Simulated scan of single mutants.
Amino acid sequence: MTDENRAALREALRCAASALKDGGPPFALAGSYGLWAYGAPEPVHDVDFVVAEPDTEAAAETLAKADFIVDRPPEDWLFKARPIGAPDVTVDILHRVNGRPIDAADLTEAQQCDVLAIRMPVLPPSAILIQKLRALGEHDCDLAALLPATRAIREQLDWDRIEDDTCENPYAAAFLTLVARLGLREKA
């Protein structure tokens, strides 16, 4: 990733968070940038925010007023916002994660963090890792991609919660076995 791309992603994060803070609805930073807020390596792909499913349209309106182009992909669990003038930069606004709607209660567990000099709600690292592990499947099972972030924030993770909340996913179980064998967590 070039410094220019990194700067564009950071600016999109800042602008989207500022717009949502000012115009609503309630939101939280999630995904890899959410983990970055807790000390994980900086991501290179996109920015993820979550909003409660009933607030999806309000979030789209807020971002459109803040000079984002709102795209509605075929997937019905998110919309994409791209800053005008930066079409290659994507901010994903998720209202459903792993098939489950985001609700107001999900947002209440977010922690206030300073991210790029803006105080904003960020989902807890355990909740974000749970979402990432639940998304693993036979067509998307890159365990190695999760290791750098997990290694960086391992002391902040609630391993029992992660194991309990992902026990139905065999790929998540494989990842938890891997991190235990690598010494990143205590063995269960």
Rank of each mutant, 00 (worst) to 15 (best):
F175V: 05
A60F: 02
T62L: 05
D3S: 11
H95K: 11
C15D: 10
D88R: 06
Q112Y: 09
A135R: 08
R119S: 12
I102G: 09
I84G: 01
D22T: 05
D76F: 13
T2D: 09
E163D: 13
R119N: 15
E11Q: 06
D46V: 09
R100C: 04
L13S: 09
F49G: 00
A144E: 03
I69P: 00
A105S: 07
A188C: 11
I128A: 01
A135F: 06
P121T: 11
N169V: 01
I118Y: 02
C15K: 11
A59P: 11
S126P: 15
E75H: 11
L13W: 04
A12K: 04
A59D: 14
L29W: 06
A81W: 00
D103C: 10
A127P: 03
L20D: 05
L143M: 05
L116D: 11
E42D: 06
A12Y: 04
G34E: 04
A37E: 01
C113N: 08
P43K: 09
L157V: 02
Q112V: 15
L184Y: 15
E57V: 11
I118V: 10
L20H: 01
Q112S: 07
T166H: 06
A52N: 11
P74N: 15
A174N: 14
P87C: 10
L182G: 09
A173G: 08
I84A: 03
V47D: 00
L176M: 07
S32T: 02
G23K: 12
G24H: 05
V50Q: 07
G31F: 10
A8D: 12
L63M: 05
F68T: 05
A66D: 07
P124G: 08
Q131Y: 14
N98T: 13
D22G: 05
V44K: 13
R6Y: 06
P26Q: 01
P26D: 08
P121K: 11
I69R: 01
N5H: 06
R185D: 01
S126N: 13
A52L: 10
E57I: 12
A104C: 03
P125V: 00
P148M: 14
R100Q: 14
R96E: 13
R6P: 03
Y33F: 14
A59V: 14
L176S: 04
Y33P: 03
P87D: 15
G183F: 05
F175N: 10
I153S: 13
P170M: 08
G23S: 15
R154E: 02
L184P: 14
R151E: 14
P125A: 13
F27Q: 13
P26R: 03
L143A: 09
P41K: 13
